[in-house]
Every structure is written in structure tokens, then in C-alpha cells.
Nucleic acid binder design. Structure first.
Lengths: 150, 150
DNA sequence: CATGAAAACGGTTAGGG
DNA sequence: CCCTAACCGTTTTCATG
């Protein structure tokens, strides 16, 4: 992962459909050299996937919620992580410092769905305490990659 | 945005390089019909961009921090939003409910950089109070799209 | 709005340094 | 590890239903 690799990754992040020849011109390499590097970056895991950034609202997911979670005493943490990974609404889940155990980021079709998700977590026996924060607007929204499609 | 559009978007999210004919076979359309729909989705803004999901650690950004921010009394909110949008470390910035004004997600090369960013926010005269939470690990990391490259 | 065939483009591979 | 050049699969366009 040298400087050119970083530049290529940055260019792909901005537009993954740019022609290899174009990218090559931008970094001073031929199209095939760029192709080789992209392959290597994928093999190394530096580039995880080619995806699309979609508008969550257009996809029917206008609600963004952050949920702080403390697991119940004796809860199976690895089961919780699997649950989070498999849940279609869970965009991110981080083990964090501070008074809470996890920070979970949810994308949902409606406010009512927050309650449903909390109920699901509770039903699995994970939930100790939680606190939900809603995003009112997002000056910097970050990329949204729809989850769950094969 | 019908059901087929959603399916196409999902398939692209999983692998944006799949051939249009392939996607067509999966949704029951011809390659050119799929192409038309993708164009339309982009024009509508439902698909914002074709990108790559990269490994932040491989790119030298192993530190993930969430910062709660309350702006200083009389701070220029729109200037803060511009600042956040332009800052390379700010992956997300949300206006939120609850005791804090904003939740900011940062990707950084080292722990020390957290202090630097906070100092920058302070230097701009935005910062009232803040609280920083670090992610120790991420059971569900979410896509990382490198920022800042043209 | 979808189709199918033809045309143009770009990713891929081969051969060589 | 990179280059050029030829190859061939894919995207894209277009006429049509």
C-alpha cells in the first residue's frame, strides 16, 4: 500500500466507474498497471468491495437512530454480535469506551420501527439498558450501502 | 422506485461490478433495461455514486471515534456544518436529539489525532462542550468510503 | 417501458522489458 | 513491477414493439 495505491483507492471512492486509462493518467501509470494494483488491493483486503452509495430516504429508510446498549448481565456477547451483523436495520455496531457497551446505528422505515428493534434485542435476552438518539438531519451523512441483498 | 429498482440497488450494493446481463437475469430483465433503470436511479439521486468500500486500517486510519458536540452559544451553525463537511476525518455528522447538538464520527490515524481535531473545532470558535467515545472493535463496521479525493 | 442486435468502449490478457 | 497492443466481453445506443 504505497502512495499511488492510496490515490487509486481515493479516486475509486469518488467514482468507481472511471476508466482505468483515466485513473492511470491521474496517477502516472498505464491502464493495465492500474488494473494490477486494484486486483492486489482487493486481494489484500484493502479494497473490500465495489458498491453503490444510495440515498436511504429514497429506499424507504428515512429514520436514522443511534442506540446505546448495555448488555444484560451474563448475556452472550458473541451471539449479540451475530444478531447485529444479521439484522438488516443495523448499519453499524461498535464496542465502545464509556458507560455503554455498544453503539448501534440503525436505518429504519419509520419511527415506530425503533421500538420493534429494541423489542427484538430484548427478546433475544441481550438487552440490559439502552438509550436511543435520533438524527434530525445530517450535515455529513456518510455513504449508505443497502444491506442484506445477496 | 419499484421493487425491481430496490433489488437492482441491493445487487449493486453487494457487487457494483456485476454484469448488467447477470443482474438482468436475477431480476427478469434484459441488460439494457437494467442499464436504463440504473441511469434513472442515478438521475433521481437514489443511487448517489459508484464507490469502493475500503478497509480503514489498511489506509492508515485505525482509530474510530465518536464525538458529542455542543456548539458554543452564538456559534455559526452553517459554518460548523461546512467545516464538518470539508474535514477529511469527519465521516459523518448528525444533528441529534438529546442533550448534545451533534454526533460526529471520526476516522483517524492515531489516538493523538483526536486532540488535534478537537483543537481545530475549538479554534474555529464552534466548540462549547464535547465528549469523546472510542470504538474498541466493530462487530458491524459498515462501509468505509475514503474521503477527500477529487 | 422493454427488447434485441449492432456499434463503441473499456477491462483483460499476452508478450516483452 | 510496468508498458504496449491485441482481444473480447460489456456497456451503450438505436430501431422497434
Amino acid at each position: 500500500m504505497d502512495d499511488i495505491d492510496r490515490k487509486i483507492t481515493g479516486l475509486l471512492a469518488a467514482d468507481a466507474r472511471r476508466a482505468l486509462a483515466d485513473i492511470g493518467a491521474a496517477v502516472g501509470l498505464s491502464a493495465s498497471a492500474v488494473n494490477d494494483r486494484i486486483r492486489r488491493l482487493q486481494a489484500q483486503g484493502a479494497i473490500r468491495a465495489f458498491t453503490v452509495d444510495a440515498d436511504p430516504a429514497a429506499l424507504g429508510l428515512p429514520v436514522l437512530a443511534f442506540v446505546w446498549v448495555s448488555l444484560r448481565d451474563g448475556a452472550d456477547e458473541s451471539a449479540f454480535r451475530s444478531f447485529a451483523a444479521a439484522h438488516p436495520a443495523v448499519m453499524e455496531c461498535h464496542h465502545v469506551t464509556g458507560p455503554w457497551s455498544y453503539l448501534v446505528k440503525l436505518r429504519l422505515p419509520a419511527l415506530a420501527a425503533v421500538e420493534t428493534v429494541l423489542a427484538e434485542i430484548k427478546a433475544q435476552g441481550f438487552l440490559g439498558r439502552s438509550e436511543t438518539i435520533l438524527a434530525l438531519s445530517s450535515p455529513v451523512e456518510g455513504a449508505h450501502v443497502p444491506k442484506g441483498a445477496a
